[in-house]
Each structure stands twice: as C-alpha cells, then as structure tokens.
Simulated assay, not measured.
Amino acid sequence: MKPRAPWLEAHASSSIQRRFLVMMLAIDRTSYYLVILTMGLMTLLVAAQVFARYILGTSIDSADELSRLFFVWTIFLAIPHGIKIGIHVGIDALAGLLPVNAQKQLARLMALASALVMAALFWLSLGAIGDKWQQLMPTIPVTAAVFYIAVLISAGHSLLHLIAQIWQVEPLPSAPAASREGETS
C-alpha cells in the first residue's frame, strides 16, 4: 500500500510527529499567505495614501492606522517562519566551540527555554486582548485588541515550531512547491 504523504516519511519517525507536521504545514501555509496578503494590503494602502495626498490633495483618514496594523500583522505572522529555520539574531561564538552533539543538546535546551517564553507571551497576550477589547481605534470602529491578537497568534505559532525543534523534527517548507516549469521553489 502506498502512503498518502510519502514526503512526510523522511521527516518524522512517529505517527504523532507526522500528524504534528501536517498540522504545522497547514498553519505555516495559512500564515505564509496571510503575510503576503497583509504586506500587499499595506503596500497598496500606503501607495493610495501617497497618491491621494500628493496628486488629489486629500487624505485617507485611516491610512496611517491601517498601514500600521498591516505592518504589525505582517511582522508578527512572519516571526514564526524565521524561528522555524533558525533565522534570528544569535551569538554562537561559545556554542561553536562545543562538540556537535553538545551543540544539538544546547539547541534543544534553548528551544525549550524559548518555548517557555512563548507560552508565557501567549498567556499574557490573552490578558492584553481582554484589557484592550473595549477600546476602539481612533479612525476605524475596530477594537484596539486586534494588535494583540497578532502577538497571540505569533506566540502560539512560534511555540509550535519550538516544540518541533525540541523533538528534532525537520520542518516542512512553508511556501508551496513550484508547479510549472521554469519556476523555482
């Protein structure tokens, strides 16, 4: 019998880890497309604001607030993708001197410590959302808690990637593979 997803076999040794990877793939792809959407909306809004201000001599009232909101969402949605592949600021001068096995164990320990921080951030952002829920943004009738929702999502998504690092499970690519000839992945 042929496995439904043979590309997962090389990435996880247990069925729990395979299911975890499939779940993470769905979350990563959703987040990937949301980053593209929020960045695109931010770019279009800023371009429209510049056009309105300098060509039409008017202004879009909510452009500053919405572009800031899209920027915050873009950044916080993108953070877990960096955590997933280890793109973050780090100084590894001391760790680089250790044997390879010790480096792996130290990486797992740091992933565990970071996971604890993300779990705390997730919990604290729930409280911040509750505190800000009644407050509306000045130019649009949307709760100010929407900024903290991005933090909540980022912390939860990052926590899942850190758990994968603790398990030493290789992540799957967030971006979909190229489907046509001539495209790169």
Rank of each mutant, 00 (worst) to 15 (best):
I27P: 02
L112H: 05
I60F: 08
A111D: 10
Q49A: 15
S125M: 09
R29H: 07
T74V: 08
F147H: 04
V169S: 08
I36W: 06
F70P: 01
M118P: 01
F51C: 11
V151N: 06
I79P: 01
G40V: 02
H81R: 07
P141S: 14
M110P: 00
R18S: 11
L152Y: 09
A93C: 10
S14I: 00
S114V: 07
R53G: 07
P141E: 13
H157D: 04
A150P: 01
P141M: 11
K132V: 08
P3K: 06
S31N: 10
Y148R: 06
P6R: 00
M23L: 14
S125V: 07
M39L: 15
I55S: 13
A164W: 02
Y148C: 08
Q103P: 04
S13Q: 14
I83C: 04
I91S: 12
I85C: 08
F71N: 05
L97S: 09
L56N: 09
S179F: 10
V117S: 06
V117W: 04
L160N: 00
I16P: 01
I153A: 14
G127R: 07
L8Q: 03
Q103K: 12
Y54S: 11
A47Y: 06
P80A: 07
L44V: 11
M23H: 04
I36H: 04
P138N: 05
L116E: 03
Q135N: 12
I91V: 15
L162D: 06
S59H: 12
T38N: 13
R4E: 15
P176G: 03
Y148S: 13
M39P: 01
T74M: 13
M42Q: 11
R18T: 03
F122H: 02
P99F: 07
I129D: 03
L98Y: 10
I85D: 10
R29I: 09
A10Y: 00
I149Q: 09
S179D: 10
S59W: 08
K104M: 13
Q105C: 11
R68G: 15
S14P: 03
S114P: 05
Y32N: 02
A150F: 05
A48D: 07
L126S: 10
F20L: 15
A175M: 12
Q135I: 15
G82W: 00
T58G: 12
V169M: 03
H81S: 15
T43H: 04
T74Y: 09
I140W: 03
F70E: 00
V35L: 06
S185N: 02
P171H: 02
I153F: 13
A47R: 00
E183M: 10
V169L: 05
P80K: 03
L25M: 11
